[in-house]
Nucleic acid binder design. Structure first.
Lengths: 259, 259
DNA sequence: ATTAGTGTTCCACAATATGGAACGATTGTT
DNA sequence: AACAATCGTTCCATATTGTGGAACACTAAT
């Protein structure tokens, strides 16, 4: 299958191909197997993998079979921490907060109730207090509705707590609401969590499309009419898309990528 | 600088060095910065990184700065799933279960109570039922004591539930017990969770030494005397060490690694 | 002992990676 | 606007670097 392109990086191409195989393999492959599978002479395979090993990208188990190295396992561990998501979404929250003047929040699925992991405050005196680490039920927050709607969490059994007179407590009604969320792409609450409090939220996706978090803008009913909420909802969606899907239009230089 | 060794893998060495920098950098580096920092000509740097990009190990944000690629982020995501730990520990659980004849369990820290994620059953008719997904308090299970003792979870506030007459409900007494666990390297319960049930557990560590899980052997008091529990405790510790620390004595071939 | 299986090292050869220079595209300065 | 300074990509002659066959070392199973 060798890439016919005269790229001038055979060694690196082969090494990365081997590495990819090693880190995706369900069972640790041996040198010989790799050499055969990729049609690279044993000697070369040995040299390439030794290089990867020296750099910590690959290590060996007691049988000499190859496993992902420490550089990669460390990366994996650090990658899956809330802090990474917070860091990645910070600029977005700030931009949303400035643009709307209201409080922006970032939340992920906790257990039982959702976990707010970052917040950028409003400019106004009257605004939302600090919610980080606060426990909020899924069904009466915009952040939570999004996570429910896109399957980031399952709807829990048991009765739905009624926090205000407007809270959704009927299971069927909640499902309809979630369907609506999926349709518009964002969720709204209007006094369902606390009297006089409104919010909009939209989903944050992984590269693979899985929803892993949600971002909201919230404030007092007196400043945010339904019309504003819808506008902001679209704004959040747009901003998230911008941040998530990197364009970097590299349609220059290159004489059009092969095939 | 420049590994004096005549390794014959300059391209791969340089590419991996660049990649390591990219995935550990707190802020996405640009091409020029990398080239300068590693003292590699721009042209070469460009070619190397393009290769990494083509293989999915690196991608660019909207400014052209470099981020870990999809191959790596996917790896990271899959890596931190329970299933990976289960797969890695399966052989160990099986070996322990066969050797002792009793039930082996694997647990990690859940929220509030520990989460049993795998089990290999006993040979006997009288044995432990299926515990996977069962919620068990930390302070009266061997698995939980281990996680507490090694800081995999913090001791929760509030009173300690008394499940049997032997359960530890005194906070100070629990601390003493945990100290003892750290000393011996394994934890024991004797009827503290359920009458007639005993268990031993030992910690499973990450590469960096952090305790992330625990493994236990449990059975009826009638088959497992304290003496047996201590013996099995040492056995678990030993087996885990064997599985965790890969020897692969590569003191052959080589004319003694440099320096 | 013999055979088949690992993986590593050696070394002559030339294919492949190299890096200076030129180029195109952006950005900031006067 | 024109200019200067950066940025990253491509080109291409050069020789450095990677290549792969063969020999070797070690282990395991006949």
């Amino acid at each position: 299958m060798g890439q016919a392109t005269v790229s001038g990086t055979r060694a690196v191409d082969r090494a990365t191909a081997l590495l990819t195989h090693i880190i995706t393999a369900s069972t640790p492959p041996q040198l010989g197997v790799l050499a055969r599978e990729f049609d690279i002479p044993k000697s070369t395979t040995s040299r390439l993998i030794s290089a990867l090993e020296r750099q910590g990208f690959v290590k060996r188990d007691r049988n000499g079979a190859f496993l992902p190295g420490d550089v990669l396992t460390r990366f994996a561990r650090e990658q899956n921490q809330d802090s990474v998501l917070v860091a990645r979404m910070r600029p977005l929250l700030e931009s949303l907060a400035t643009q709307t003047g209201e409080t922006a929040n970032l939340a992920i699925a906790g257990n039982g109730s959702l976990k707010i992991i970052d917040q950028v405050d409003s400019n106004f005196m009257l605004g939302v207090t600090n919610w980080i680490e606060r426990e909020v039920p899924y069904h009466c927050s915009a952040l939570g509705k999004v996570l429910l709607a896109y399957g980031a969490i399952a709807i829990q059994s048991g009765p739905l707590p009624k926090l205000t007179s407007k809270s959704i407590t009927n299971r069927a009604k909640l499902l309809t609401e979630l369907e609506a969320v999926r349709k518009t792409g964002y969720a709204i609450i209007d006094g369902e969590l606390e009297d006089g409090l409104v919010a909009v939220a939209a989903p944050v996706r992984e590269n693979d499309g899985r929803v892993i978090a949600s971002i909201s803008i919230s404030g007092p009913t007196t400043r945010l009419a339904l019309k504003d909420l819808n506008r902001i909802g679209l704004l959040i969606v747009e901003k998230i898309n911008e941040a998530t899907i990197p364009p970097h239009n590299q349609i220059k230089h290159g004489k059009a990528g092969a095939a």
